[in-house]
């Protein structure tokens, strides 16, 4: 029972990371495309909360190596290269954002910080998507007999993985766009982000389609898994069908309704993903699977881990609520 409960907590951490961390990464991507206009909005809106938004990743990785060490080992060996690239991008963007925000002077250096922050935000999400894709693409060999490229390169260097990477980039930028709509102070700023959202949403549909096409063409596991799970299909369909409603909300400037609906849309996408995975953590190239039961640590570990996480939940959620209420309550476009 603890194994399932811990997996659900990890799922919740990942959903929160997707939404909160995604908004943070996406803010960098938005800056990359619409430039300095959005710079001050991003800094003001993100600065108090951005550190906390990235803690979900730490929680997820700790759960992984503590509770599911075999999956953590696959992540860190077969996907060594994209994980390292992801981490370097995380370091670059985090420090560049902090430097930009806290540098005592605002001079030419700000341009360098901004450039690093923007590109590494995009690369971080891209490599994260590439890494995640390998868990359900069926590109990881189930044994260690393969060549270097089979073991460490083709696991993540393929059309499918790139599609997932791009999809995650567009989704992050989309989440950030929706969030920043409520933070901009001018009509002009609102409109430029609104246009960006339309544009990036189109791109997410294209990359989403590319995920399916590449899975078919390369005969990977993803589309088979997806099509055999009706709830995932339903989640995907509903998430797509509420798009016109969101469009209306954006036009009507209904900030909080829009944020909640988009949040729900992301939860649907994530649940759709979790359902095709459950109870498996990794789908191998030969179709065999590493389930959470195969990967989990001994019962004593799972029990202790669950209670540590439960303490964490009791401490973290109220503090987080306080933080968000303190800095987000008075924000409203009207």
């Amino acid at each position: 029972m603890y194994t399932e409960l811990i997996m659900i907590i990890m799922g919740i951490s990942l959903i929160l990371y997707m939404i909160l961390g995604g908004a943070d990464f996406g803010a960098g991507i938005i800056e990359l495309f619409i430039g300095d206009k959005s710079n001050s909005t991003v800094s003001r809106a993100m600065a108090p909360v951005w550190e906390a938004n990235h803690m979900w990743l730490i929680i997820a990785v700790v759960i992984l190596f503590n509770g599911f060490p075999k999956a953590y080992v696959i992540l860190s060996t077969n996907l060594h290269i994209p994980v390292l690239l992801f981490l370097i991008a995380i370091i670059m963007r985090g420090t560049a954002f902090t430097f930009r925000h806290y540098d005592a002077y605002h001079d030419k250096s700000e341009k360098i910080y901004s450039t690093i922050f923007r590109y590494s935000s995009l690369l971080a999400v891209f490599f994260m998507g590439i890494t995640i894709s390998a868990f359900f693409s069926g590109t990881i060999p189930s044994d260690t007999s393969g060549t270097f490229t089979e073991q460490y390169i083709y696991t993540w260097f393929n059309w499918f993985a790139v599609s997932v990477g791009v999809f995650l980039v567009t989704i992050s930028a989309y989440i950030a766009g929706i969030f920043l709509l409520g933070e901009v102070e001018t009509e002009e700023g609102y409109n430029s982000i609104r246009k960006f959202i339309m544009w990036i949403f189109g791109l997410s549909i294209i990359s989403g389609a590319s995920i399916f096409i590449s899975s078919f063409v390369s005969d990977l596991q993803f589309h088979k898994l997806f099509l055999s799970h009706p709830i995932s299909i339903a989640a995907g369909v509903i998430a797509s069908l509420i798009a016109p409603y969101i469009y209306k909300l954006i036009k009507a400037k209904k900030i909080w309704t829009m944020r909640i609906v988009v949040g729900a849309q992301m939860v649907l996408i994530m649940i759709g993903w979790f359902i095709i995975q459950w109870p498996n953590l990794v789908v191998f190239s030969d179709g065999t699977k590493l389930s959470m039961y195969d990967a989990s640590g001994p019962v004593a570990t799972m029990k202790v881990l669950f209670f540590s996480l439960a303490i964490g939940v009791v401490v973290i959620f109220p503090s987080l609520y306080y933080l968000f209420r303190l800095f987000k309550s008075e924000d409203n476009l009207s």
Binding site: A52, I58, I59, F65, G297, L305, I311, G312
Partner: peptide, 12 residues
């Protein structure tokens, strides 16, 4: 792993 999961909370 236990101190790491506690550390996650403290760090948060």
């Amino acid at each position: 792993g236990m101190p790491f999961s506690m550390e996650g909370t403290a760090f948060f």
